[in-house]
Design a binder for these strands. Structure first.
Lengths: 152, 152
DNA sequence: TGTTATTTAATCGCGCGCGATTTATTTTAC
DNA sequence: GTAAAATAAATCGCGCGCGATTAAATAACA
């Protein structure tokens, strides 16, 4: 391999992974002041969104939707519980499972939270069609990558 | 606002930010076994890439390229130094600055590292043109979001 | 039935990632 | 020339995020 080809291989700007990595951080920066108003971190916000969509889920179910492990979720959920937004109870039907439910305060927070997404789309500077296409392409790619690990 | 519109607003699948967040995690999972062979974490790998592109940079310069703070980089660089891949020295011309340079081991690692990017592109399942378009759109979006914070 | 395998959360250790602060150095303004 | 402002790293505290492990409950099966 000649030098120009070698130089091509390791250029940061060409790394799709880096664009995603840095775009994720950029999102976090934009979200932070908005979520501070709700008293949530970004991952906590995602957990609340899944619960607003469907209340009373197991830790496992939340993890499947967010691609997170119990080792991440358990401490996070305890913080949400400490802040009075959710309750955690062992499922009487299956004591292995822990059911996570919204408290009244958790349900109420939804109204304030609904003001967030439009602000974010605005901050990206994308028109809706481009945003939708990006979203679709990224989900396809993620699903492909997640599936790749399941060989055998 | 009626209920169907309300339901639309907070659907996880529609969140571009979540696609990026979860795609980032998926990348990490794919990278991990490859980077384990190099003895690097993903952020450490990014720092090494910037140094392979341009050796002997300040912490600030690396941070500007990766959008990271010194509070993130300093401990990371100390770990790279402890692993014998870089050296850290105060700049004699400006004692505030710390110059980070590749050791011989750090330079040598580049050869093994060049095998990584093709594996990754393969794992995404994307054709090159789609990957390039995604990359371009994401960088544009990120730059827009980073610029948005600089108002005034 | 009883034993083994699987499933579910929780725990622990480690490496980010950042905001806020601190320390040292350099630049600027007066 | 000195005081004030700006800049660069480093430090600290906190919240992820995960791999590895553990403990408890359930399922599978001989």
């Amino acid at each position: 391999m000649d030098n120009s080809s070698k130089d091509d291989l390791l250029q940061l700007e060409k790394f799709l992974c880096f664009s995603i990595y840095s775009a994720g951080h950029a999102f976090n920066r934009v979200y932070k002041p908005l979520l501070d108003n709700l008293g949530l971190t970004y991952p906590q916000y995602l957990v609340m969104v899944t619960l607003w969509q469907e209340d009373n889920q197991s830790v496992r179910s939340i993890g499947a939707k967010l691609y997170l492990e119990s080792s991440t979720l358990t401490p996070l959920l305890k913080r949400l519980e400490a802040n009075g937004l959710v309750s955690r109870k062992r499922d009487p039907e299956d004591e292995r499972s822990v059911r996570v439910s919204l408290t009244e305060a958790g349900k109420d927070l939804r109204n304030k939270a609904e003001e967030v997404p439009p602000c974010i789309l605005d901050a990206t500077g994308l028109d809706i069609e481009t945003a939708k296409r990006l979203n679709r392409d990224l989900r396809t790619m993620r699903d492909q990558m997640e599936a790749g690990g399941q060989k055998i």
